[in-house]
């Protein structure tokens, strides 16, 4: 048996057990809200809290440099328009995703950075999971560190929030599991050596030991899809933006931790 089938098998057995034993919780938000850090070991917590040892800070440093660099046909840097990110970007990540009139849809921080790049800098957009986009997203996110997640759901966004909630409760993949079955109904319980978290997005992008690199929230969504043996959606997919909005609403009030570290 390979490691992968062994892991998958254990996951299936463990979840089958807790799903039978557990009872459906109807509360839409976990009570109380807990950061993913509370479900990790002391090593991961120490790594995140030490601003030098935290490997995610390498991406923040990269993002900080990119913020100052001129790019594209317009020859403008982020700083040329936005000035010092420490003030102009303070609290921005905490308010995302938002409704974008031009797209007539949701946009997340990554999307907004790409939009600036294409329209204002007239430069090629970055690849979704590139070190550059992760760096800028992490640098912008860090400016909201400690501020409560506080997305505003206006009339235009209500439909997207509902779509996100539907997706959150929809069973998927060969294991026929929804997000909610793990992260809403069974958080705090053991799955092998790990404790199931509440699945919040406030620490993203995160440095994940499993990945050995920084990764986006949408990469994490893909990890969960692969964990339950579902088809993987691409980063930036509309359904991922809906899910991102639902998570932002669900975790409202939790402080932003970017750049987070997880196992």
């Amino acid at each position: 048996m390979t490691q992968k089938t062994l892991c998958g098998g254990l996951l299936a057995v463990a979840l089958a057990l807790i799903c039978v034993a557990g009872h459906a919780q109807n509360a839409a938000k976990p009570q109380p809200l807990k950061s993913g850090l509370e479900f990790t070991g002391p090593e991961v917590r120490d790594l995140q809290r030490d601003d030098f040892a935290n490997p995610g800070m390498l991406w923040v440093t990269r993002g900080e440099k990119l913020w100052q660099e001129s790019a594209g046909a317009a020859g403008k840097s982020c700083a040329a328009c936005h000035g010092d990110a420490k003030t102009s970007m303070r609290g921005v990540t905490a308010r995302y995703p938002q409704f974008d009139a031009a797209r007539a849809g949701l946009i997340n921080i990554e999307g907004r950075i790409q939009q600036c790049r294409e329209r204002r800098q007239q430069a090629e957009p970055f690849k979704y999971e590139s070190a550059e986009l992760l760096g800028l997203t992490a640098y912008v996110g860090q400016q909201s560190r400690g501020m409560p997640a506080s997305v505003t759901i206006d009339a235009q966004m209500r439909g997207r929030l509902e779509a996100g909630r539907d997706l959150y409760y929809r069973r998927m993949g060969q294991m026929n599991l929804s997000c909610a079955q793990c992260h809403q109904d069974n958080w705090g319980k053991k799955l092998g050596p790990e404790t199931i978290s509440q699945g919040h997005s406030v620490a993203y992008p995160i440095y994940r030991l499993e990945w050995q690199t920084m990764g986006s929230l949408h990469r994490r969504f893909r990890s969960c899809q692969s964990g339950v043996r579902a088809e993987l959606s691409p980063q930036g997919a509309p359904e991922f933006l809906d899910l991102e909005l639902y998570l932002a609403w669900r975790e409202g009030g939790l402080p932003i931790e970017t750049p987070g570290v997880r196992r």
Partner: peptide
């Protein structure tokens, strides 16, 4: 060394 509970193909 403990193993990750969930398979990650990303």
């Amino acid at each position: 060394v403990t193993l990750s509970a969930c398979y990650d193909a990303t």
